[in-house]
Computed example of a mutant assay.
Amino acid sequence: MNETMRAVVARDYGSPELLAVEDMPIPRPGPGQIQVRVEAAALNGGDLDLLRGRMADVAPLEFPHVPGMDFAGTVTEIGEGVTRFAVGDDVFGTGFPRATGRFSAAFCSPLSLTSGAMAEYAVLDADAPAVTHRPPALDAERAAALPISGLTALQLLREGQIQPGETVLVIGATGGVGSVLVPLLAVAEAHVIATAGADDEDHVRRLGAEEVIDYRTADVVAEASRRYPDGVDAVVNIALPADRLIDVSRTVRRGGRLMNAVHPAPEPGTYERDDLALGTINSAARPGDLEELAGWANDGWLPAAIGRRYRLDDGPRAYRDLVQEHTRGKLIVMMDR
């Protein structure tokens, strides 16, 4: 094995413009860890939150920093005490940067910790349920697109306790989380109302949305209230900042639910209603969650929602595109060798 690898690297906090592809030492696994030759990695907004220092008080980075949480690849080396995986196993999953261990243990447990997935090799903790075997029928790019988005969607579905026939407004349906959540809601026999631009209407309808509100030409709150004067059963927010959720809560019926996946969460006491069930979720992996998501993808319940593919050399540009351009589904970086 070569002693160095190529990786997307940040040398300090800042914007995606600071990212570059550099040669880095290949990380080696310690006790309880596995080394993975990464085949595909997916971008997440959380990568950029960490890079910009928005979570530095609770999740400080160590530099040079390799971003990237979601990955798929092949085990190339195992550390002492690892029995769950063997060299040659195809795996996929997600992990927080190793330096943020205190934060991830407190808020996102039990995710693995990683040396950074946007690289040719990564090291991860082997015992976390957020890393698992990849089924042979699930290709690497689809597997890499699943973890954070899928685990977040599962948490939202569980938190919302959605029942067949209920109306659910999904704000931010075209992104990675929405591309998993909308099909799962449709399978749960919910009536899904998705927000999406006109160019994405066919996409979200294929995912399972029965109604679409074009957020570019209509006020979402006003339009949802016009269609459902008594309110929808639940709203899932995957896009709007906390200060917009007071208005959004007006679209929810009495006794309904508002679930939020955007951080930071609204301050306590933000809402004047005492009948509204509120929940802000963090990504978490229960044993079997990734396996369940992989099974649904194999069975066709979760359509492939990959917006664009990049080579590793274009990894910094992929992060710039995530910020500057409208994206549909997940952005995937393939490791070319």
Rank of each mutant, 00 (worst) to 15 (best):
A196T: 08
F103C: 01
L293Y: 06
R286N: 10
V170N: 05
V180P: 00
P241C: 09
H65T: 02
V323K: 03
H191K: 10
V91T: 08
L245T: 04
R244C: 04
P29R: 08
A318G: 11
G73L: 13
E120V: 11
A86P: 01
V232F: 08
V220C: 00
E77M: 15
E62M: 06
V21L: 09
V170I: 12
S249E: 06
V252I: 05
P164T: 09
A126R: 12
G30K: 14
T327S: 07
A128P: 00
G14I: 13
E62W: 00
G279M: 11
L61G: 02
L43W: 06
L331P: 00
I306F: 05
L331D: 01
N298F: 02
R6C: 08
M118Q: 15
H65C: 11
E223T: 15
F103H: 10
G45C: 01
R205I: 11
A106E: 08
D90F: 13
G269N: 08
L185M: 07
G53A: 06
V323M: 12
G45E: 03
L207G: 02
T327N: 12
R328V: 07
S283Q: 05
A128G: 00
L113I: 02
W296G: 06
R84L: 14
G329H: 01
A137I: 09
F96V: 01
P287N: 04
Y310P: 06
A265M: 14
G68S: 03
V168Q: 07
R227A: 02
A153F: 00
T114D: 05
S15L: 09
D214W: 03
P135S: 08
I332W: 04
I213S: 07
V91G: 00
V180I: 08
G295S: 15
A285K: 11
G101Y: 14
V58N: 01
A144T: 05
L322G: 00
H133S: 14
S104F: 11
P183H: 08
N237A: 12
